[in-house]
């Protein structure tokens, strides 16, 4: 099972960050939503981003694969400039950056299998046979190989999100971005998605996760980053962030979350 994800065995020893965000800024018109964000994710690390809504977390994540165009700053993936890529080179770069959306965004007109195969064939230029083998393998990985022939509309939200994860994994990305992957799910379906994410982490996948699942952050994250008002306010290991928050903003955020007010 583990071999399927192809992690570098010595992943954690690498000195160079897998994903490096330098002085990232983003404005919409005159509104500044991100101000000089610095953040790096080491190979095999799971970095968790928390913060109130409107704090710029999702925008930051979407800048990493340029679904949102950064206004300033650079993004590096494994030493390569994501921010310098244009056109076809950007498409190629995106193959190495897996992304999972809050709304799943499975293609409703294609079967589960075809969803996972499409970019493998069209963008990665794998043969159909290879793509199919790989797709089945990834669907097995998320526990949904038996749904390969189903249409997305026949799946529960949790199953759809796991297919979306398989769709991204099948391209052998170097890093996985998760944009509130469980926010659109019914509470009883959240667990199945988190389980897959935890499994990925154990296999050494590098992950950057924006989410409100504090419990999950506490047990699975290597590092937690707290953002507010477009800046990184505080970051550190989960036990420090949750156990001993320094800034007043983080303290008030955590107390609101704990009271269930978020």
């Amino acid at each position: 099972m583990t071999a399927a994800i192809s992690p570098t065995p010595s992943a954690k020893v690498h000195a160079r960050p897998m994903l490096e965000i330098n002085k990232l800024g983003k404005s919409f018109g005159t509104t500044e939503v991100l101000t000089s964000i610095d953040l790096s994710v080491r190979p095999g690390e799971l970095v968790f981003v928390i913060g109130p809504s409107g704090s710029g977390k999702s925008t930051m994540l979407r800048c990493c694969n340029r679904l949102e165009e950064p206004s300033s700053g650079t993004i590096l993936l494994d030493g390569e400039h994501v921010t310098a890529c244009q056109g076809r080179a950007l498409d190629k770069m995106r193959l190495k950056i897996g992304m999972v959306f809050q709304g799943f965004h499975l293609y409703p007109h294609k079967s589960v299998l075809a969803n996972v195969m499409l970019a493998q064939v069209k963008a990665l230029k794998r043969s159909k046979a290879d793509a199919k083998t790989r797709a089945i393998e990834m669907l097995e990985h998320v526990g949904l190989a038996h749904k390969a022939e189903s249409m997305p509309s026949e799946l529960s939200g949790g199953q759809q999100q796991r297919v979306a994860i398989a769709r991204a994994l099948a391209l052998d990305p170097k890093v996985m971005l998760f944009d509130e992957p469980t926010s659109a799910l019914d509470p009883e379906l959240v667990g199945s998605v988190l389980k897959v994410m935890k499994q990925l982490r154990e296999e050494g996948m590098t992950m950057l996760v924006v989410s409100h699942e504090m419990e999950f952050a506490r047990e699975a994250a290597d590092r937690v980053v707290f953002m507010d008002g477009g800046v990184v306010v505080e970051s550190g290991p989960p036990e420090e962030i949750f156990g001993n928050p320094q800034s007043p903003r983080l303290q008030s955020f955590l107390s609101r979350v704990n009271r269930g007010g978020e």
Binding site: F101, H105, Y107
Partner: peptide, 11 residues
Amino acid sequence: GQWEAGRATGL
């Protein structure tokens, strides 16, 4: 989101 999912997977 459909466009983004396509572009994000390198299409």
